[in-house]
Design a protein around this nucleic acid. Sequence first.
DNA 1: TATTGTTATACTCTATAACTATA
DNA 2: TATAGTTATAGAGTATAACAATA
Lengths: 157, 157
Amino acid sequence: MAAPEALLPSALRNRTSYVLVKLTALARQQSAGHVAAWGLNQHQHAILCCLDEFGPACQKDIAARLGVDVGDTVSFVDGLQRAGLILRERDERDRRRQILTLTAAGRRVLGEVEDQLDAAEPGALAALTAAERAALHDYAVRVLAAAMPGAWSADEA
Amino acid sequence: MAAPEALLPSALRNRTSYVLVKLTALARQQSAGHVAAWGLNQHQHAILCCLDEFGPACQKDIAARLGVDVGDTVSFVDGLQRAGLILRERDERDRRRQILTLTAAGRRVLGEVEDQLDAAEPGALAALTAAERAALHDYAVRVLAAAMPGAWSADEA
DNA sequence: TATTGTTATACTCTATAACTATA
DNA sequence: TATAGTTATAGAGTATAACAATA
């Protein structure tokens, strides 16, 4: 995103949806950069998080949980498999399915990515106090929980 | 965005950059829908805002102010011109430039779009109180002002 | 300014293989 | 068994947006 040379119209600066789009472009750019350092994209990072927290799962369940297209999931999983971060094995009980499992290497890489993201976040939001960062996070989750209850309704502890 | 059927990993729910991306996808979807009702996209709406607030300008200045690629601006302006919302006239003093001016129709359409966005915003953020919506907006602007001082440093009154 | 092309992302459609249910 | 219908995965194709390079 090129830095504008002059002030934006107040009609846009006062429009919360516009401001959020720009804020997110910034946040996405930064976090995508960190994840990309391990050759992963955002979706692949999210898939690793799912496998780590909920254990082995088939591609369809992963895609549904993350709200990603099942067709697009194929290439993301291909990349993770090529990198040795996951195993992809036929389910013997239902051979239509392929079960994805985090490997030791995958768990290690995920840990490093998470550590780097943890370290980077305060810097990206340095203009806010810790309490304000938490409030920003809370507001976002509450709006999402109202719009998409299934995925966001639980507490964010 | 398909609604996930199950809860997201906490590693993602607790990651502010991830949450902001999802929140913005929601906000963008909704506001884009409203703007699209007039046959405009987000960039075209932003261009109209610029012309309304700062008066006639050339395409390069508009693009720089909004942080949009000058090449992409061409087709956005084409559409606005076809719809009769702007005039596009050669600058007699520098005929490389084309000066964009809001027409009466453009000003009227912009007013209607703004009214509809004003009406829609509280609904989209209904999970927050008015004070929380204002705080969310303020946090976003402050983070942006720290990252891109030129465009965002002024007060958001 | 305008044109062109590249990349990333998202969505749709179709094909294949393997499951389930039923005659 | 034989058949029909459903589901999981894969791949091709299309559409859009952001971005880069050049005329």
